[in-house]
Design a protein around this nucleic acid. Structure first.
Lengths: 225, 225
DNA sequence: TCAAAAGTGTTAGATTTACACCCATGA
DNA sequence: TCATGGGTGTAAATCTAACACTTTTGA
């Protein structure tokens, strides 16, 4: 092993995952009880250490695959958290990632196996170490992302009603939206396609199901909500 | 030394600084020739290793103080860069930071001593490793920041003319702005104060000098440019 | 038959954009 | 005196926000 940098000290590097979901009314966060010392038993984000043969992004994907069985998640880096004493035991620097998942695609047996809970973002308990800070930054970035890029669909089934979509945006923005104005904007974005299908679960009358057409979006990528 | 995590491997952690400046017409980047192997002699951002007794943010501040002699710089984290082979010699993960400095406050002797150059952002050469990527992300984040928060002043002298400010925004946005519309918006923000002072260096007639009033801004923080 | 969610347009107000001339001064 | 950058207002167009009723259908 060569060692150009051997005079400098190394640190442990971990990733922590902020897993966002949507239950139809509220944004949710998937958290668990920390399984290791120090901090065993505290509410915590799910994380893992970066191995020497994988990139930091890959580590986040690996950890999430373990947890969800899903590989093609929408994932973005929040940033590095590097206070000296953020981990009470050792010097560990952590890189946080947020992930958008459709709760319905997620195998609830995995949730139980790992002893995780979906908690409402606006009722988040105190978390281990600096995890609350990570969540706050992630939420801010996620909000901005959802208002400028068509990624909200990652939080919904591939077929969704406009009411579902609106409820999601209301949860993200933390304010009620006007139904007519909202639908007017959706109509302008022709990459949000109406299908022939009807969802009857949400109302007696039934609501049209829509889908996001990625190809159409790439042809005229103008999104704003 | 306890070792809760000793089964996991550690990595070297560095910080890299993207130093933005403005020369009155163009956004500039302060870069140098890499002083160490591997990659000696290539254009590179200025960086350094994170020590075990300092936070990652503190490491960035330390490195920048070394380089500029300035302590109260506007600095924001861009993110962590963690490809396995981003450093050709060893596994080094780096956290990038961007910094806004007023070129006039910067002691040019330091620049010469460290053998650094101001290069135009739109004429940036190829840099060592993934540094071009870092700069690109930093630029994107900086652009967003300048359009939503009053930090542009960090790139200007504390007294500045409206023409200077407009030129700066033109450089940041990469487009020309309408002088009358620009000044109209400035007038709405009463925390950008006109002083009695006149700058005669830029024109025969002289231009009024303005200053950013932080206190007034904190009383009604509404900024948009 | 009625409760509950789906669906649909118009208008006033606010914001944004385009645009051209006079002023003060040093060279 | 003239070239140079400083400084100023108005009107059209666009965008945003507010607002209420009809439809469908299962219980």
């Amino acid at each position: 092993m060569t060692s150009f940098y051997s005079e400098h000290s190394k640190v442990w590097l971990s990733v922590d995952c902020i897993i966002f979901g949507f239950d139809g009314n509220h944004l949710k966060l998937l958290i668990g009880r920390r399984q290791m010392d120090p901090g065993r038993g505290e509410w915590s984000l799910y994380g893992g250490f970066v191995r020497s043969d994988e990139s930091v992004d890959d580590a986040a994907h690996r950890v999430l695959f373990e947890l969800t069985g899903m590989r093609t998640l929408y994932m973005r880096q929040v940033g590095a958290f590097g206070s000296v004493d953020r981990d009470p035991g050792e010097r560990v620097v952590s890189v946080a990632y947020y992930v958008l998942i459709n709760v319905a695609d997620y195998d609830d047996r995995l949730r139980q196996e790992y002893n995780l809970e979906w908690v409402r973002l606006d009722e988040m308990p105190q978390l281990y170490s600096d995890h609350n800070q990570m969540v706050q930054q992630a939420q801010k970035q996620m909000r901005l992302k959802l208002s400028t890029e068509p990624v909200a669909f990652r939080l919904l089934p591939s077929l969704f009603t406009l009411t579902q979509l609106q409820k999601l945006y209301e949860a993200v923005k933390g304010e009620e939206l006007d139904k007519r104005n909202f639908r007017k904007r959706i109509k302008e974005m022709n990459f949000i396609e109406k299908t022939e299908l009807i969802d009857k679960t949400g109302s007696k009358r039934g609501a049209a199901l829509y889908r996001f057409n990625k190809r159409l979006y790439s042809e005229s990528p103008n999104f704003k909500l």
